[in-house]
Nucleic acid binder design. Structure first.
Lengths: 401, 401
DNA sequence: TATTATTACTTACAGAAAGTAAGTAATTTT
DNA sequence: AAAATTACTTACTTTCTGTAAGTAATAATA
């Protein structure tokens, strides 16, 4: 019998009604880009006076503006409203497997400034220092701009504990139980959000990329490792221990049960950027006896396969087998409307999608749309806007800058 | 750019506030079994007068009653309220792979009457006739009881289209695009709900079984086939095309990509009740040259393995490998707090759970609790109560019988 | 060009539900 | 029996949404 204090049942107070309806209006404006009060009232089934009051608040708070444009039919023309993109900035930082990038992005998803540094992978402290430098730089630059900063979101390739503000495990950054929030709060007074990097990426695609308007989608990011971000019913699904979508640990065969995978999963060992390179290094000598193999990264393997080199063709074919299996298993579990392929090898996604579709046809009951990331390496940076904005509108209801 | 009319954004009206809070009170009473007005108000953060008004409505509508019991501390004793189990009945029917069972269940999860018939699997029309007979019988019996009937829920082993009321695909029943709701409406005027059988089962465990108080759980039912029911954030996850949890189609190795699986998936071919028997029939002759194999069902294989017969030990070990792989892949995708093993082989679950835990330890990042179904073959029948009740309280806000 | 029709938005007030504060009711303690 | 304590209710306020009737802005028409 559960303890009563564990029960999480949501009630609702008068004031939350306004919050909910305000969120709905914001969501609607985001999706349709521009709409009049009358249209909003009709579509969202709230009365015109309520709509007007909500819009007044949103304009007052700086989140929405009248675009100046008018829509005219017969009578008085409609005053088109839109999100006030220019006035609301977010700082996004993406800690990748091998690089770090950060940007100042506005609410419209436009990147105003972007910085990148390729060297990541030293000690945990070095990586933190690099991150801290990025945050300081971006905040300084953003403060020069004539707009308010809503906050910053940082995408971390690993498993987080949001409540405690810890990075539980991020092997690529050499962080174990690293108190990231606490450390960053000493550097910046902005509202800070820590999020899994692929979760940020799927949020980016959800608002600004191929996921627009889709309510159930999965983004599979294949880079140094493999991870998935899952949005169900329009809401990011994090899982009980915030480790949903750790699909790098998918087991692509029962023979994989006999190994342990500390920090780098079974699927990752054969189908991630690193896995592909490893497989290629094993395969290459079979075709080039006696020679010493060249520098090998996943892109090189894909290029060689495109050129028709047999060793590479074989590796790519096997990679596609493993990815097909992984996508198939994800799909039969969660049944999304759309699967997005992204991450470092998104540039090769066009080589993958059709073969994957072909391998899965008839093998699983229903194949969803599978598409290439539209935002590529910008996905997580734009996802930062989504994450901060959702946080901002959820909590700071009317307050403004 | 999405069409505005596709946008599904929820707004909220004054009257819905009451609905939401009423649902919260019901949910709380369900979880704690009995509570006073004061306790409810304190726990759910609603004022005492509001709580009182809601309780008045719920008593008026017959869903809640004062239990008569009192809780006493120092001053006036608390009037303990509880769900009015005796006054609210639901008819549940579970269409299994080989049998049909139906029951009259009260809101407390007590089965008042139960009927079972083993023969299912003829033509689609024969199966429908059998179902129709069960529904008529149960309704007649239920109407004799001095309580109102909230509705009936039918668990179907297949993929549904709830909106259209169709059974899209249920191979075991010989139904393809079968207009089940329409056909049943001619027989009964009760509110009828069609639901996937494993979805019903997981709802049953969620309210009345080992899933009580858990908000993210997966139930894997292994019977003739293999299916999963998924509850995320306290809500049944159905997926975009209502085919989430079709884990019988999980691919347990890339070699499974080379076959088509119409109606019976790759995992099912090796690890379902039927799959286990098939594997055993292949393995048996290797140990008994010349002899003709006995009647073989999954339970026989498990029994033989428990007796230490080598052919059966091998088959069970392989089955456990495949199930470990399947559970591992489900877990890394959705990250549940709890995985429940159920279905026909739930009786052998105790033989499976520890070996599965062992095989997955260190292989995936975090192992959730894995437990045996508490309700066994009653899970879906009790899940019917949950499903009907949720429907009833969502729609029939104040109206009552 | 002035008038009318049409549509967009606003204002004034009504209704609904939650909340506050101060009651009454039922027990235990003194 | 009176006081203290706790549970529930009643009376009234606040905060939302909604309805109906305005005013505002534009196109169509005379």
């Amino acid at each position: 019998m559960p303890d009563p204090s564990d029960v999480s049942v949501r009630t609702i107070a008068q004031s939350e009604m306004r919050t909910i309806n305000r969120s709905a209006v914001l969501e609607y404006l985001r999706l349709v880009k521009a709409a009049s009060r009358t249209e909003i009232a009709a579509r969202l089934q709230i009365s015109q006076p309520s709509t007007g009051r909500i819009i007044d608040e949103l304009i007052e708070s700086g989140l929405v503006r009248s675009s100046g444009r008018k829509e005219r039919l017969r009578g008085r023309s409609r005053d088109l409203l839109e999100l006030n993109a220019d006035n609301n900035l977010v700082i996004g930082i993406d800690l990748g497997g091998s690089h770090i990038s950060g940007a100042i992005v506005n609410l419209g998803g436009e990147i105003l400034q972007k910085f990148t540094d390729s060297a990541i992978g030293g000690s945990g402290e070095e990586n933190f220092d690099k991150l801290a430098g990025f945050l300081r730089l971006l905040q300084t630059e953003a403060q020069r701009l004539p707009a308010r900063i809503l906050g910053a979101a940082i995408g971390v390739p690993g498993i987080l504990d949001s409540r405690a503000g810890l990075v539980r495990l991020a092997p690529g950054l050499d962080w174990i139980d690293f108190p990231l929030r606490q450390r960053l709060e000493r550097i910046s007074d902005l509202p800070l959000i820590l999020e899994n990097d692929v979760n940020l990426a799927v949020l980016g695609e959800f608002w600004y990329g191929v996921g627009r308007g889709v309510r159930d989608l999965v983004m599979v990011a294949i880079g140094t490792g493999i991870g998935a971000g899952i949005i169900l019913d329009g809401k990011l699904h994090r899982g009980y221990s915030e480790s949903s979508g750790e699909v790098g640990y998918i087991l692509p065969g029962i023979q994989f049960l006999n190994h342990k995978y500390p920090g780098f999963g079974a699927l990752e060992s054969v189908a991630s950027g690193k896995g592909i390179a490893d497989q290629a290094l094993k395969k290459w000598p079979l075709f080039h006896a006696g020679e010493s193999p060249p520098e090998m990264e996943a892109v090189d393997v894909f290029r060689a396969a495109r050129d028709g080199q047999p060793w590479a063709v074989q590796v790519v074919s096997e990679t596609i087998d493993y990815l097909s299996l992984a996508l198939g298993n994800i799909i039969v579990c969660v049944d999304p409307e759309l699967v997005i392929l992204g991450g470092g090898i998104a540039s090769s996604a066009s080589m993958l999608i059709d073969p994957i579709r072909e391998r899965l046809t008839g093998v699983i009951p229903r194949l969803p749309r599978i598409e290439e990331s539209a935002l590529k390496e910008r996905a997580a940076l734009l996802g930062a806007v989504v994450r901060v904005f959702q946080n901002f509108t959820d909590y700071t209801v009317v307050a403004s800058g």
